[in-house]
Nucleic acid binder design. Structure first.
Lengths: 119, 119
DNA sequence: TTTAAATTTCAATAAAATTCGAAATATGGA
DNA sequence: TCCATATTTCGAATTTTATTGAAATTTAAA
């Protein structure tokens, strides 16, 4: 990851609504959540949510897939790991710092897993 | 670390001048660098640097100490580690994700180590 | 005490981001 | 087809942020 990517990713997370959204997605795991549910959990208007999700997606931190009428959003763990690596890379001018390890969820089978989301 | 602290820290890093400054400090290690040198390396005006360093300090990501006429700034690794932990905490809804390990520099003896900084 | 160097504060300006209602767009079901 | 639901786009008001020159402040050396 390079500087500009990192700034974009950090800027995407540096806002309370968006950080809340991202944390919700991270905790939701690979299965993700439909937009409406996220808006509900985060307590923001749908149009605001859409704005923020676009920001997160553009930064590579969130992905989406269509499932019926719903759009399911998920955290992109690789991007998060890339950011963590960037922040700690070449730490301390070459001193022996423990490298950051990755967050690698087991991909719980998501095939057709969201045909009909709960209310 | 809680939500608001994390937002503050992320916001401090989510700006190219400041991220550059922070990376410079991280790579400089516990010995740190005088403000003037940082401005030089980052290529920004002293008054801009001061503004950004204040932002980083306020977020807990940088510390400073006086050394003669110089003010030496250092990265605060604990704060960075706290942020990394926050971002990955409770990842994947309790799935077995590897926890993030810390960046812990060996404190190279800094006693009186910066009485006179180089030009 | 004067002088010089390093850093910070101040003021003003310019640029960008956040919010949400209303309207537009998609998607599936009756 | 027609309707209801889910999400996105657009527009406008408000707030926040970044930038730098000039002036003020701090510290040490002459």
């Amino acid at each position: 990851m390079e500087m500009n990517e990192a700034v974009t990713a950090l800027a995407a997370l540096a806002q309370s609504s968006r950080l809340a959204i991202f944390r919700i997605l991270v905790q939701a795991g690979p299965a993700g959540l439909p937009a409406g549910r996220i808006a509900e959990l985060a307590g923001i208007a749908p149009s605001s949510l859409s704005f923020h999700l676009k920001e997160l997606s553009h930064a590579g931190l969130a992905g989406s897939r269509q499932a019926g009428r719903f759009v399911i959003y998920t955290a992109r763990y690789e991007a998060m790991n890339g950011l963590l690596d960037f922040l700690t890379s070449n730490c301390c001018g070459g001193n022996p710092c423990t490298p950051v390890s990755k967050c690698t969820p087991k991909p719980t089978r998501t095939k057709n897993a969201a045909r009909k989301e709960p209310a």
